Amino acid sequence: MARRYGGNPAAVIILIAADIAALILILWIFFFVLDANRANDLVSTVHHAANWLATWSKDMFTVDNAKWRTVLNYGLPAAVYLLVAHAVAGRVNRS
């Protein structure tokens, strides 16, 4: 696993944390787009976690279509977390 993420343990932790954050955000996008039952415990937990992770980007885009709005407002932080984590991990690996 360390080889996939790079050799430095700190870089590995950074990348795994970003992967988990992005996974939660992407899961919520899929749950919302596919009209998952929000009363379900898993869906509810993912929704709450995704809301927290996307606090800074919620309502950044005000598209009329709710599904596109969700894709944009939750997809942006997923991409940002991954891009920033890879940049930071690359920097940590070079140190």
Rank of each mutant, 00 (worst) to 15 (best):
R4G: 03
V12D: 04
N65T: 05
L15E: 10
F61V: 05
R38N: 10
T55L: 13
N40P: 04
I24A: 12
S57C: 00
T55S: 15
W52G: 08
A78S: 08
H86G: 08
A22C: 07
A87Y: 10
S95K: 15
H48L: 13
I29K: 00
W56V: 10
I14W: 06
G90C: 08
R91D: 13
F32M: 05
L15P: 00
R3Y: 10
D64K: 14
R94D: 10
L76G: 00
D35C: 08
A17D: 03
W56F: 14
V84Q: 03
S57T: 13
A39I: 10
N65L: 07
N8P: 03
S44A: 14
D35N: 15
R91C: 14
V43I: 12
N65E: 11
M60A: 14
I24N: 02
H47M: 14
V43N: 06
N8Q: 09
K58Q: 13
A18Q: 08
V80E: 02
A79T: 10
T45P: 08
N93H: 06
P77E: 06
T70I: 09
Y81T: 01
V63I: 15
P9H: 05
L42P: 06
W52A: 14
N51E: 13
A36C: 04
R94C: 02
H47I: 08
W28Q: 11
I29Q: 00
V43L: 06
N37I: 07
V71W: 04
T62E: 14
H47D: 15
A11G: 12
G7A: 11
A54E: 00
N73C: 04
H47E: 15
A18L: 10
R3V: 06
A78R: 04
V12I: 09
A78W: 03
A54D: 01
R38M: 11
W56I: 09
